[in-house]
Amino acid sequence: MKLMKNTLITAYWLTTVALFIFALVLVFTWTPTESTMGDVQKIFYLHFPVAINTFLACLVNFIASLAYLWTRRRKYDDLAVASATVGVLLCTIVLMTGMIWGKSAWGEWWTWSPRLTFSLLLWLLYASYLMVRPSIESTTRRALVAAVYGVVAFLDVPLVWLSVRLMPDIHPNTIALEPKMWLTVAAFALPVTMLSFGLIFSRYALYRRENDRVEARQQEEEFNETADAAATLYHQGGLTS
């Protein structure tokens, strides 16, 4: 059973890597160059799937946070941290590829256009989630504050979107893509999604293993303390009666 599980996990990761390499080869050899923007448009094939997966990671964080508030079980908090970490990582990549594109297309690393600002605010929202956590000592309290923050932060995302739309826009809104280009986007979407969900769940699994140990030790200590107290009481009772 365990061997089969390990084989499946290995197969999953090997497939992801293989598909990713395949998509990379596709972009640079097979996909036609976009006529107006030129070669730099190739960034889009990675940029777009990663952006979608950023939202998915945030969605997982939202659901896990709600589940924590509902059940108060530690494992949902672990899932929430794992998804927030991966979300920040993906959002960093979105920002980075976006900035490189911007430098090449508009000659500026950064412009305060709605979508760039949106990604930056999204990044800030979830980076603060990760940064605030360690400053709260009690684990249950930390999980509670994080869960509340996770819920509010996700509900905040549409508001961020609305508010940045007040700014002037230079971002390409509709991009006319040839069928071959859409195929390349799809070829990247698959491994990137597999990668991000694989990362979320393996990080989660690692947290579970580590925290299971911690919880087991805590329970053991509590049990010992209770047993000691009971023994003391018993002896005292034995002496007095």
Partner: peptide, 30 residues
């Protein structure tokens, strides 16, 4: 909301600002 959540942990200053600022950015922006 967050002053009730964060302050009860005995943590002051930094974390509360870290929690409130990003959330209220859309308001500030608008």
């Amino acid at each position: 909301l967050f002053s009730a959540a964060v302050n009860s942990t005995g943590v002051r200053g930094g974390p509360l600002a870290m929690v409130i600022f990003p959330i209220s950015l859309p308001l500030v922006l608008a």
